[in-house]
Design a protein around this nucleic acid. Structure first.
Length: 317
RNA sequence: GGCGACAUAGCCAAGUGGUAAGGCGUGGGUCUGCAAAACCCUGAUCCCCAGUUCAAGUCUGGGUGUCGCCU
């Protein structure tokens, strides 16, 4: 079966992914599939830096702004939704461009990871989570060792979420994490992907972009938006978004706005660092460094060259 | 000018004679159904000089600096 060509634009937050993806889409007749775990939610616009109509430049964006904030979402949901988008885009004769900073989503989609067909039982999960709290990580890890020694070996006793997941996966489906891992890569990816990553040689530049963007968000009314969402139930995906929970102490009168703004900036910087850690291990990424160029146009031109090479190679095959 | 206090990693900070807690930040890493989440790893010889002592961040003297009070 012939593979579908896909361009993926990845990188840390505030690096300029959105703009580059749009430029690529304009140049190569593309449409964009977002890979962002928070921009999927309706209403969460300012904090997530969701592209505005103006920024979209008329390019069609998929998987943005379509879910209410109380609906939970997961990688598995993302992959199946995004697969459909890519098929549709490709079927209509456009080039699919995956753009976003949620590394897990990007990789799972493009490497065609298949998730366990059965869902984990919420009650079992709850029970094991309680057991973790009462018995401790060491004990649960011993239990996991009996059913899946490999996974038990690589997990740290403090890593509650993964220990609970590994155990509840087995108890509710009979599949071990190790088996699931093997199963997940059985079918080859239907995509031929060009990865373009954006990073800065000088981290300080990225960090000052982040700081400045937070200030802009505040000017654009982040506080009003945050008032609506800082109280989201903690078991929702949306409640994890950076931008509301950091402002929460301010609304509760526990901290000053300045302190909360600082913490919001810091959390965003840390998030960017984690994103870089994630993407750096992908050897297939063609990294582009904005601080290598005099201006953005030159950088975009270089990205065009990389993309042209990729598409030509693809056409030749 | 006088009196007093303090001087430990980027920041906060414990330690009062036996060979440098901790927190925050920073940097690195893990990552397969909540991933903007969760988790792991990460640093100093204690302002300078001289002295006491087997042994000094810890005691003594001098210097420098900072802060507070007073005239």
């Amino acid at each position: 079966m012939e593979k579908i060509p896909v361009i993926a634009v990845v990188g840390p937050t505030a690096s300029g992914k959105t703009a580059l993806a749009v430029e690529l889409a304009k140049k190569f007749n593309g449409q964009i599939v977002s890979a962002d775990s928070m921009q999927i939610y309706k209403g969460m616009n300012i904090a997530t830096a969701k592209p505005t109509e103006e920024e979209k430049c008329g390019i069609k964006h998929f998987l943005i702004d379509f879910l209410p904030t109380d609906v939970r979402f997961s990688v598995a949901d993302y992959v199946s939704a995004a697969q459909k988008c890519i098929s549709e885009i490709n079927g209509n004769g456009y080039l699919p461009i995956v753009a976003g900073g949620t590394g897990l989503y990007v990789d799972s989609l493009l490497q065609n990871i298949s998730f366990c067909p059965q869902k984990t039982d919420d009650n079992i999960r709850k029970r094991i989570s309680d057991e973790y709290d009462s018995l401790g990580g060491e004990n649960l890890l011993l239990r996991l060792k009996e059913i899946d020694p490999e996974t038990a070996l690589r997990l740290h006793p403090s890593d509650k979420s993964r220990i609970v997941r590994a155990l509840s996966l087995f108890y509710s489906t009979g599949t071990t994490m190790t088996q699931q891992y093997a199963n997940s890569r059985l079918s080859e990816s239907p995509y031929e992907t060009l990865y373009i990553g954006i990073n800065y040689h000088n981290r300080e530049i990225l960090y000052s972009r982040i700081n400045a963007r937070v200030d802009t968000m505040l000017q654009n009314g982040l506080l009003n938006e945050a008032k609506e969402y800082f109280d989201l139930s903690s078991d929702t995906t949306a409640s994890q978004a950076i931008g509301y929970k950091e402002l929460s102490p301010y609304f509760k009168g526990e901290k000053s706005l300045e302190e909360c703004t600082e913490s919001l900036k810091r959390e965003t910087r840390r998030y960017a660092k984690r994103q870089l850690t994630w993407f750096r291990r992908n050897e297939n990424i063609n990294w582009i460094y904005p601080d290598d160029y005099e201006n953005t146009d030159d950088m975009v031109k270089n990205a065009f060259l990389i993309a042209e090479n990729f598409l030509r190679r693809y056409a030749d095959e």
